[in-house]
Design a protein around this nucleic acid. Structure first.
Length: 821
DNA sequence: CTTATGAGTCTTTTT
DNA sequence: GACTCATAAG
């Protein structure tokens, strides 16, 4: 501690670089912050410093973080440093900030402030309809694929007409895609809805189309700070540029409300805001979402007077962990040289463990956690990471068996559950009765005798008369719907009307009711909870409980936001991220994907599934830069650990009941051997085991990818395996066949409920036209036609009592009685 | 119109 | 293996 600490308590305990970053007055500041280098601390202290020194008012600060959780934390920490005055700062994610701006300015460009935010499921539902309507199925378009492409384009700030201008119109597929894209844009607008990507892109368009709006926000936000800058995409980058641009004098003069003259230059211009970005290109892991690493790499050339501060001292991990992390990331060639170091000593070696199967791996994790816990480590200090959500199954199973309290972050999110989406659809529809997605969803939740036909009739009526779906329902007598359906529609319409009245009373003097109350009223009137409870299924009981939980969430919201509207509640709900759920981790082990883990730290970290095909993931291998990104992902995972890191893998991994041998991750080999203390090495359990005997059950042809020799394959089989390995598509085909085969085998060994003769011939008969067969339920019939081949052969059988049926020969419960008559 | 069943499809990461 | 989709039966 030097004596200058006394000059400014905000600088106390900071190192040289950190201080430089905190006090910098640069208009453009890049803080290159290695993992664990205290960047959150630097950011919060920088903001506090700006305010404390009267360089900025709190209201002039816009700080963008990656998650709402991080935002809340930052606001709280700044508040702590200052004692007060942090309320008027904007601290939020890109998405939340944009929603706030859009809600305020929506009317300017034909939207309503109560617009709906479509999540990816909503977008897909809309696209599905559009694909069907346009007949694009013929071109093999799937909602997911179209959605991804549209998302990519929107992240590049390309509209449908932009794209149409560059697309090869001669390609019919391209032409159809352009159609879909523009239909999608139109439908969103008509529904008064934005998708996730729109939130950013439309804000950029808003600023570009309405200079006075842009000027207003530029004048307000004089200090813009962006965290995790390496994960910004082009649209976000453009947004930052728009916000921090200088504004010419004539645009200022055009403003309705004049600006504080102190902000302007003598010539009357508004200079650009000061921009601080924090990031680490080694931790860029969202390229699949359009994140462009160049945003951070090119920062210095983007802003000619940029100052760069590098934070390389790590305060989080032991040297052993850092050495491993450095060794892993050093293999990425196009990076800026940076090496983390710590003063905290080598610490424990990394513990490695290779299990026989994912269960074995999970068992090790569970046992080790138990051991740690017995040694006095709190569960909340332990985290388990994995590459894919599917890996949670084995982990959860073993943790549960060991009675270890755990919590899965992300995964099947609360708000993704069907019953929750149903309830949310009601609220959404109340706020935005023009939104077809939520309306269509609530129609049959719960089932009330309104089917596809009735729905389509009402929808058409609403759309042709340009009225809301609610209004169309009220007027359903004009449509000519059957009496039974009509009653259901009318009663639902009444409920919606009542709810709308509660949420937004027509009389100005009446105050809106709290969200929890409205939700309860809807669930009561629609008898949704009642219907669920009436069923015997325990799953439905769980659903009812989830709804109760949602009501509790709504009431919590009401309590925390007095006078909070349904719109605000919905906004909050639609923008929650996985980590935002991480409020109380004190008593539980945390399970999460490597992506979710970014920005977090834990004393004890298990990084599981360190295998080829998983980390790096199979899917990344064909993508340009894919493996480099996977490497960064591994780096992120490793650097989350403070005290102790575990790296685990399994020599076989089964997905979908099909067991495959695995190969240790290439990243593992980059870590110096001396850093790892193997409890069980991959060699100990390696390929010998795989080659030993399990091959019979997994079948031939799937042994490629390095499992190599030593097996009982014939030369021909091995050649087959190699050939299959050569092409991805062939591999998939091969694998699918095995899957089918293994299922059939499984069935054969199980006791079969119907007559034994059928069981014996279950999956291995050949049929010809004219054969007579007996089916378990259809009885006797004769084969009229055979289509398809191999496993997929289908017999068209005409049954004596049930007419003609198509049966998959391998699967159908049939027995051949006689040959041709 | 709803529900049950069988077949077919897709498996990376997420604001 | 989980989920969706299409189809047939209730």
């Amino acid at each position: 501690m030097s004596f200058s600490d006394h000059a400014d308590p905000l600088l106390a305990g900071l190192n040289e670089q950190q201080r430089t970053a905190v006090v910098s007055k640069s208009k453009a500041l890049l803080i290159v912050a290695g993992a664990g280098s205290g960047k959150t601390r630097v950011l919060t202290h920088r903001i506090a410093h700006l305010i404390r020194q009267r360089i900025a008012w709190p209201s002039q600060i816009l700080a963008i973080t990656f998650t709402n959780k991080a935002a809340a934390e930052m606001r709280q920490r700044v508040g702590q440093l200052l004692g007060e005055g942090a309320e008027s700062m904007w601290v939020s994610t890109f998405h939340s900030a944009c929603v706030r701006i859009l809600r305020k300015e929506a009317e300017r460009f034909g939207y309503v402030s109560g617009f709906t935010i479509y999540d990816s499921a909503d977008s897909r539902a809309l696209l599905k309809r559009l694909i069907k309507e346009s007949g694009a199925e013929a071109y093999n378009f799937t909602p997911a694929a179209v959605g991804n492409k549209i998302s990519r384009l929107k992240n590049e700030l390309k509209t449908a007409s932009d794209y149409a201008a560059t697309a090869r119109v001669t390609d019919p597929r391209e032409a159809v895609f352009v159609e879909l894209f523009s239909a999608y844009e139109q439908e969103l607008r008509r529904a008064n809805a934005f998708d996730f990507d729109d939130l950013i892109a439309q804000t950029v368009y808003l600023f570009r189309a309405f200079p006075d709006v842009a000027a207003k926000y530029r004048a307000r936000f004089r200090w813009v700070l962006i965290d995790e800058y390496q994960d910004t995409n082009h649209a976000q980058y453009a947004l930052v540029r728009e916000l921090t641009k200088a504004t010419p004098a004539d645009a200022i003069a055009a403003l309705k409300t004049p600006l504080n003259p102190a902000l302007l230059t003598p010539a009357g211009d508004l200079p650009g805001a000061a921009l601080t970005v924090v990031g680490d290109s080694d931790q860029s892991i969202y390229a699949f979402r359009g994140a462009d690493i160049r945003n951070i790499v090119d920062f210095e050339s983007d802003f000619s007077d940029a100052e760069v501060v590098k934070l390389e001292q790590n305060y989080r991990s032991t040297q052993n962990i850092l050495d491993a992390a450095n060794a892993i990331i050093a293999e990425n060639f196009d990076r800026q040289e940076k090496s983390l170091w710590t003063a905290s000593g080598p610490g424990n070696k990394i513990v490695g463990f290779a299990g026989y199967s994912q269960h074995d791996e999970a068992r090790f994790v569970a046992e080790e956690i138990e051991r740690l816990h017995n040694d006095g480590v709190a569960y909340g200090q332990i985290a388990v990471f994995y590459r894919t959500n599917a890996q949670t199954r084995a982990l959860e199973e073993l943790l549960m068996r060991a009675a270890i309290p755990y919590r899965v972050l992300g995964g099947t999110k609360f708000y993704d559950r069907a019953e929750i989406k149903d309830a949310i659809a009601y609220l959404t529809s109340i706020v935005n009765p023009y939104d077809p997605i939520s309306w269509s969803r609530l129609l049959s939740a719960p089932k009330r005798g309104i089917g596809a036909v009735t729905e389509a009739q009402i929808a058409v009526f609403a759309e042709t008369n340009e009225i809301s779906y609610h209004e169309a329902m009220l007027r359903c007598a004009e449509i000519g719907i059957g009496a039974k359906a009509r009653n259901a529609v009318l009663s639902l319409a009444q409920t919606l009307k009542q709810a709308t009245e509660l949420a937004a009373p027509t009389a100005a003097a009446v105050k809106p009711r709290p969200v929890g109350e409205i939700l309860e009223m809807i669930l009561k009137e629609t008898r949704y909870l009642e219907t669920l409870r009436a069923k015997r299924d325990p799953q439905d009981e769980a659903r009812a409980e989830n709804l109760e939980e949602l009501i509790a969430v709504a009431k919590e919201f009401d309590a925390a936001n007095s006078g909070g509207t349904v719109i605000e509640f919905l906004t909050q709900v639609s923008l929650v991220a996985a980590v935002d759920e991480l409020d109380d981790i004190s008593g539980t082990v945390s399970l999460m994907t490597l992506h979710t883990a970014k920005g977090l730290e834990f004393p004890y970290v298990f990084l599981t599934g360190v295998e080829e095909g998983l980390l790096p993931h199979q899917m990344s291998l064909n993508e340009p830069g894919g493996v480099a990104e996977e490497r960064r992902l591994m780096y992120v995972g490793v650097t989350r650990a403070e005290k102790q890191l575990y790296l685990t893998l399994a020599s076989t991994r089964s997905q979908f009941g099909d067991i495959a041998a695995t190969v240790p991750s290439r990243f593992l080999q980059d870590i110096p051997e001396t850093l790892i203390d193997w409890r069980q090495t991959p060699d100990q359990i390696g390929h010998r085991c795989y080659a030993g005997g399990s091959l019979q059950t997994t079948g031939s042809g799937y042994g490629g990818g390095g499992s190599g020799g030593g097996s009982g394959y014939s030369a021909g089989q091995r050649r087959d395996a190699a050939a299959a390995d050569r092409s991805q598509a062939a591999k998939w085909r091969e694998r699918k066949q095995q899957l089918t085969a293994s299922r059939l085998n499984g069935k054969q060994t199980k006791p079969i409920s119907f007559g034994t003769p059928i069981a014996q011939n279950y999956n291995d008969i050949t049929l010809e036209i004219g054969d007579r067969i007996e089916h378990e339920t259809y009885g006797i019939g004769s084969v009229r036609l055979i289509t398809g081949s191999g496993n997929k052969s289908v017999a068209h059988v005409s049954f004596e009592e049930h007419g003609e049926k198509k049966l998959l020969i391998r699967l159908a419960p049939i027995i051949k009685i006689t040959g041709k008559d």
